[in-house]
Write a protein that binds this DNA or RNA. Structure first.
Lengths: 338, 338
DNA sequence: GAAATGAATGCAATCGTTTGCATTTAGAAT
DNA sequence: ATTCTAAATGCAAACGATTGCATTCATTTC
């Protein structure tokens, strides 16, 4: 079996509590330099490894944070996750990663599960459509930070981006190129972030006198297939859009698939602005103009906030950070030539 | 505070052990239907949530597995991770994800850390250059499965692909198109998987009478920058290669960057076969011919094996599964025309 | 009617560590 | 020599759940 404090204590002829105080340097009590050295020597000799499970249980502190995201294989979330994991590691925390696959019940199960396992805090890219559940979570005093997806009317810690403005700007850019019929592959309609993007889209449509046609808003999911189908439905309209704004990493792949099938040429036949960059976009057949997120920054900020809250449990104030997106103009947009 | 077994026991007028037996249906002992129903009712009424930390401590079983990979933001690993997480969830396990960033000392720290925290098993895409460490790990009787990267001379559980054959086949394909000088952007040279790919590459070079020039083997890392620099060094040779085999997801992005800088045109000026597909490859300016891995399958198999080992600790046999890669021919290879 | 059986539940130790309080000991102060 | 102080360490309970064994009680068996 593993070496315990008791083993060391016996060998050193002291009490386990003394060993504990030495090895986890509890400053409140003084230990003679002599015994300290002896105990440390024996601990090394026996290659003592603390039972972190016992410590966590006793201290009610697991040094673990839970990360709940829709899909780790999506580069948007894996980018954020990487940053979160790095930052957690630096802070001495482990990271438990959970994929919800946009299933809100699974998300709730995970939250409960993680709490029962005593995580010290949670970072969540939620797929809930409303904030109800988080009120309850706040009551339980588990520190948590929402990332990317948040709720306007919930006063919680959150790190998110300028969804409304970025959508507005994208539509505006397309309008300036002469486009009047702009489709929006929005992704899951219930999400608050998507609602904000939709609002930015609609604001621009109204303000700039573009075609306001509900049929131009398509899709209700984030998969490649969703993007494929939604694009298909748009292109089949009697008056199809001349430009697209796509929301979500996978959707745009589906869109490209449809476009290929329809033998359309980007950007002459169709302009595209896509939410979220990735390392491949510059090398695509038609390099996409994108709205890109500072993934590393988002992850870092989320962990920073969470650590703040974990270390100052009394501090009831919430932190919300809006990060800016970057608008990378590439070749997928062109002036309308008809 | 949280509701405990004792709270339920008091309210029901029974002993905590009885509650424990009812709620975690220990079959060895019979409980009257009457008390069972009453206890369950009270547990629900109080919304009892078991303290999984206490259970894990007592049972020496955390229902957690550790996943150690180089980089979750790399689509290769995030694809595998997604599959592993899904499969773990189905089996009732949580997943702790750790990024080593190809730092072997960090990997060792993580392994130790996870063991101290009592994970029930480990899945590792190792960045160790040799198998030494794993011998020790095996001695500690922690079930573990190596994924993607493994050691020929270590008898451990492993899920990996046909590195040697796939590299051979790639070079052979290029040779059939008339290429004689084929560069290899190998990635981290110390890794056993890379050594196998190199062997496949060299076997083909020798067997097919291609140029055997050590200068054609370039790079020693997996980053975009590594790929960029390595490609640059190859293209600057007095006799540059006419085709490339690239190892690793990121490297090929660096290669494309260099190729752009040098104003070369794919595939006319240079043919490329790249290790590992991703959803974007079909839509690139020059859709890459790739050797792609069955990521979901690899993750599933790894978890399957691990569960086997966790549930049958006495079974000393090891499982090794070689999965096949898929060769997807796209437009990045062409016959040599000089 | 005594003994045996068996069902249902209680008891108490245990997992490894931590921590408030008690105890010991040595030296200083009176 | 007695009391006081402080430094160093020991003691024991506690965290919440589990489990082998003991106990109780009702029922069956001879």
């Amino acid at each position: 079996m593993a070496v315990t404090l008791r083993d060391i204590a016996e060998k050193a002829g002291v009490h386990p509590s003394t060993v504990s105080r030495i090895l986890h340097n509890n400053q409140t009590v003084k230990i003679s330099e002599e015994t300290r050295k002896q105990v440390i020597a024996i601990a090394e000799e026996l290659d003592y490894q603390p039972n972190e499970l016992a410590r966590a249980f006793r201290l009610r502190k697991t040094q673990t944070i839970g990360l709940i995201i829709p899909d780790i294989s999506n580069s948007f979330f894996s980018g954020i996750s990487h940053s979160i994991e790095m930052q957690s590691y630096s802070a001495g925390y482990n990271l438990v990663v959970c994929n919800t696959n946009e299933n809100s019940e699974k998300e709730l199960k995970y939250v409960r599960n993680l709490i029962n396992r005593g995580v010290d805090g949670l970072i969540i890219a939620t797929c809930q459509n409303d904030e109800k559940y988080f009120l309850e979570l706040a009551r339980k005093k588990i520190p948590f930070v929402l990332v990317d997806r948040f709720f306007d009317n919930l006063d919680s810690n959150a790190v998110y981006s300028d969804n409304k403005q970025s959508a507005f700007r994208a539509v505006e850019t397309l309008a300036n190129l002469g486009h009047k019929r702009i489709g929006f592959l929005r992704g899951r309609s219930g999400l608050s972030t998507i609602k904000l993007r939709l609002q930015g889209y609609l604001d621009a449509i109204n303000l700039l006198n573009l075609d306001h046609d509900p049929q131009l808003i398509a899709g209700d999911g984030f998969t490649v297939e969703d993007g494929y189908q939604a694009t298909k439905s748009l292109l089949k309209l009697s008056a199809p859009p001349t430009a697209l704004l796509t929301s979500g990493n996978r959707i745009v792949i589906g869109a490209m698939q449809t476009i290929k099938e329809f033998n359309l040429k980007l950007p002459d036949d169709l302009s595209i602005i896509a939410y979220t960059d990735n390392p491949y976009t510059p090398y695509l057949a038609c390099p996409l103009t994108t709205i890109s997120h500072p993934l590393a920054e988002m992850g870092e900020k989320a962990v920073d906030i969470l650590m703040q809250k974990i270390h100052n449990p009394k501090d009831k104030a919430t932190s919300r950070i809006e990060v800016g997106t970057k608008f990378s103009i590439r070749e997928s947009i062109a002036a309308l030539n008809r």
